[in-house]
């Protein structure tokens, strides 16, 4: 797909990943500009419906990033995010969302290079996959 710019929604935890993203900007790491960051207080508050709504509203990929296990500001919020991610991935796969489009990452406040790396990697992967088109849209296009 020529000229396709993927839209990536990133839910970043206020205490680690958001700080890392901020620091990555301050440190002038090269980052793809395809990311729309949504600051959340904890990766544990990212309900599966946020992720599904992001895809339904036109996102091509969703990144959820939080503190490393054990580092959570709220003790175990990131573990809750981890617990949900497995079933969510499975459900997304059944609904026709490629595995690479949803990622859960642990990025600490000090790991700004890692943040830049994850974002760049993900944008390139999704660029290769092409835009996300829901199964229903594919079917309507094929049949009509």
């Amino acid at each position: 797909m020529k000229g396709f710019e993927p839209k990536l929604i990133a839910f970043l935890c206020n205490w680690c990943s958001y700080v890392a993203a901020d620091a990555a900007g301050v440190a002038r790491f090269v980052q793809k500009p395809n990311v729309r960051v949504i600051r959340v207080f904890c990766s544990g508050m990212v309900d599966p419906s946020y992720v599904i709504k992001a895809f339904a509203s036109g996102a091509d990929g969703v990144l959820v990033a939080g503190c490393h296990p054990g580092d959570c500001h709220y003790l175990a919020g990131n573990i809750k995010a981890l617990r949900r991610s497995f079933l969510l991935r499975k459900l997304l796969a059944e609904l026709g969302v490629d595995q690479q489009r949803f990622r859960l990452e642990w990025i600490a406040a000090s790991e700004s290079p890692l943040y830049a790396k994850v974002v760049n990697e993900m944008v390139e992967e999704i660029r290769n996959l092409g835009p996300f088109i829901s199964k229903a849209k594919k079917l309507s296009k094929g049949g009509a």
């Binding site: 599966p48 992720v51 617990r83 949900r84 969510l88 459900l91 609904l95």
Partner: peptide, 10 residues
């Protein structure tokens, strides 16, 4: 589906 994923996973 999202609600159930959240509820079951927890």
């Amino acid at each position: 589906g999202a609600k159930m994923v959240s509820a079951v996973s927890s």
